[in-house]
Nucleic acid binder design. Structure first.
Lengths: 215, 215
DNA sequence: CCGTCCGGCTAACACTCATTAGCCGCGACG
DNA sequence: CGTCGCGGCTAATGAGTGTTAGCCGGACGG
């Protein structure tokens, strides 16, 4: 299997910069915390959270496992940071797509495109975000699930609105919104960023699939 | 989360009966091997292969972890048996759907319905089958992946045939077949057998989604 | 009634890992 | 030039867990 892709363009949201000591901005690579999360993310995505060891994460950076604790509190905390950042960012983009206005059709097209584009561009975050929910310990697990529920609701409600306005025709708002969501989620499992397909092209195609499905 | 559902109607394919000693057919519950696989399946699906311990599987049957070794060779072998059985059965049903003939449209409708119905009725097998592929050790992992590739190819080729006959219209055989596959796979993650929705009803609806997407 | 062996049990082994403790080189800053 | 602490390192701890070894009760076949 191909490991090592994306030289360093990993997680680009998440607490962005600070979160550790204080003024980190001199010696060694500027942002060790972020580098560690990137390495962890790639491993969580390719071999799974439980299968990933601290030593493996360290290897990616050329340091030993225990040294990671100078930058992160625990393995679990890394997962929390990755998953919370992922879900928060996804929701943020979805809200922006909804707030951009337009008729139901346009809004649906937009949130599907955002959904798919995110799952292609950030396939590791997305993949981990869906696969490792049960690896989260309890206060956070429920918090993330709550965000996910909101994300899904926005889809369902939009489909419902479209159906009520007689723009969409579907036998079930719930099933069709799940179908649309799931086909986008699937992208994170097979999309290859090294291929020649641009994420926005894929997103547009999937938005079209969704509209065809609903009209 | 709800554990314990389906009283005992678990894995219904897999080497069916024999495979262990020889004439097992007297004392204690008839088929211990099968009961163990059922318990393992449910745990693999709900908490994951690596997170499942032999002791937990034993608990479901009221026996200790080490006692399981009187019936199965190893934890890994249970996973192999479950996943190979799942993929084999899925392919068997798909082939039957294709062999039933009819025009492209009918055949597509049928393999989508089979796909979705299986993912609803056997959601644990399906869920584990997709999530735990990388938990398989190497000779088997590739074997299963090969079956999966064949399964996916059958979808893609049918879509392609439809497009060439000008029955379907899609910008990409590959993307649209992945979209259809993935929306069906998603079913195994959310379908609730305790609800009032019949798997065949869901299957018919999804088959309709797929056709709408392609025409 | 006796031997066999099925299918359970407990104890023990051999690892694997996350995490903690404690040590130290070295660059920055006074 | 001294010291401070960042960010590495090694060693150790302690828990978890797949699997093996060896014991034993009881049901069945003779």
């Amino acid at each position: 299997m191909s490991t090592r892709e994306r030289p360093a363009a990993g997680r680009s949201h998440v607490p962005s910069v600070a979160a550790n000591g204080a003024d980190a901005s001199h010696r060694t690579p500027p942002d060790r915390h972020g580098e560690i999360l990137d390495a962890a993310l790639e491993l969580f995505a390719t071999i799974g959270y439980r299968a990933t060891t601290m030593a493996q994460i360290g290897d990616r950076l050329g340091i030993r496992g225990p040294s990671l604790y100078k930058h992160v509190a625990s393995k679990q905390e890394m997962l929390v940071e990755i998953m919370a950042g992922m879900m928060t960012e996804l929701l943020r983009r979805q809200r922006a797509a909804l707030d951009a206005g337009g008729d139901v059709r346009e809004r649906l097209e937009r949130i599907v495109a955002v959904h798919v584009q995110y799952h292609a561009e950030h396939r590791y975050e997305a993949f981990v975000g869906h696969r490792e929910i049960d690896s989260l310990e309890e206060p956070e697990r429920s918090r993330i699930l709550e965000l996910r529920r909101e994300y899904e609701s926005n889809f369902r409600e939009l489909v419902q609105e479209g159906r009520e306005r007689d723009v969409f025709h579907t036998s079930s708002d719930r099933w069709s919104s799940y179908a649309i969501l799931d086909m986008g989620i699937g992208v994170s499992a097979w999309y290859n960023p090294a291929g020649s397909v641009a994420p926005d092209e894929l997103a547009a195609t999937y938005a079209d699939f969704a509209l065809r499905m609903l009209t």
